[in-house]
């Protein structure tokens, strides 16, 4: 089983705060991290390799510093890593990102399974996985929570939907996206850390990929962001006063008055 894992470097923004005065992001102490959902994708790839043999190649499209996440991936068990980086790739929407990844993965050739995270925490669309599958012309299954069994040309998996779980069989090669329920990612090993330090990580540019610059980055994107703004939170905030018992009473009175109960 040759597995390709798609990772993205994102700002660690879960603790992002908005400065109420300037209405901008407070960035202090924000570092770049591996997109949290992609760590489950990587872990699953490494587990599949441990179970069925083969190798794990991690890839990312991003600026030169995105190499950091690929080194981290090697410390966590990936065998190889390739960075797709070129100023021509900048400003890509999901369509252009998926196209670039698909072109590059076609160039890797040897793959049986491609694993993506369910979504990124910055772009937050979850579209790159399914778009990538379509561009490679292979099957796709989203929200995978368990890989049950892999056989030569197909595999059995479970995925999460709103109201339960589905067991699904898919032909291989395929693209899947995984949810965090699928595993608990490991910590880097000492050997892995040593390997990560010395690993050679090739960079493929638009020339290596043989792509026309009009099909990648901003020119290759179908969508365009025309405005970015910070949401106004609705401040309602009435804190009820008095003893707990009377607070509960006045809450119920209020709710009755507006007829929600």
């Amino acid at each position: 089983m040759n597995v390709v894992v798609c990772l993205k470097q994102v700002p660690g923004i879960t603790e992002v705060k908005i400065d109420p005065e300037t209405n901008t992001l407070i960035r202090e102490g924000i570092k770049n991290i591996v997109n949290p959902f992609d760590t489950y994708a990587l872990e699953e790839g490494v587990r599949i390799k441990e179970r069925y043999g083969g190798k794990v190649t991690t890839v990312t499209m991003g600026p030169p510093q995105a190499e950091e996440v690929l080194r981290e991936a090697i410390s966590l068990g990936a065998d190889e890593a390739i960075l797709f980086s070129d100023s021509a790739f900048a400003g890509a929407d999901t369509l252009a990102t998926a196209y670039t990844l698909a072109t590059a993965i076609n160039k890797i050739q040897e793959y049986d399974l491609i694993i993506c995270g369910r979504q990124t925490v910055d772009g937050d669309t979850g579209q790159v996985g399914p778009e990538l599958a379509e561009m490679l012309g292979i099957p796709f299954v989203a929200y995978v929570s368990k890989v049950e069994e892999i056989e030569s040309d197909h595999m059995r998996i479970q995925r999460m939907v709103e109201d339960g779980h589905e067991a699904i069989e898919t032909l291989l090669p395929a693209v899947i996206t995984v949810v965090k329920e699928i595993n608990v990612p490991r910590l880097p090993s000492l050997r892995g850390l040593a390997k990560a330090k010395s690993a050679a990580i090739p960079t493929w540019t638009a020339i290596e990929l043989g792509v026309d610059e009009n099909t990648v980055g901003l020119p290759g994107s179908a969508t365009k962001v025309i405005k970015v703004f910070f949401p106004q939170r609705v401040h309602r905030g009435e804190i009820l006063q008095g003893e707990l018992g009377s607070q509960v009473e006045s809450l119920l009175d209020n709710l009755r008055e507006i007829k929600v109960i």
């Binding site: 700002p11 879960t14 992001l25 969508t223 365009k224 970015v228 703004f229 910070f230």
Partner: peptide, 14 residues
């Protein structure tokens, strides 16, 4: 919303 709801973006497909 993007960035986990911290930022809003208006997008067009021209």
């Amino acid at each position: 919303p993007t960035f986990g709801g911290n930022v809003m973006a208006t997008i067009i497909c021209q």
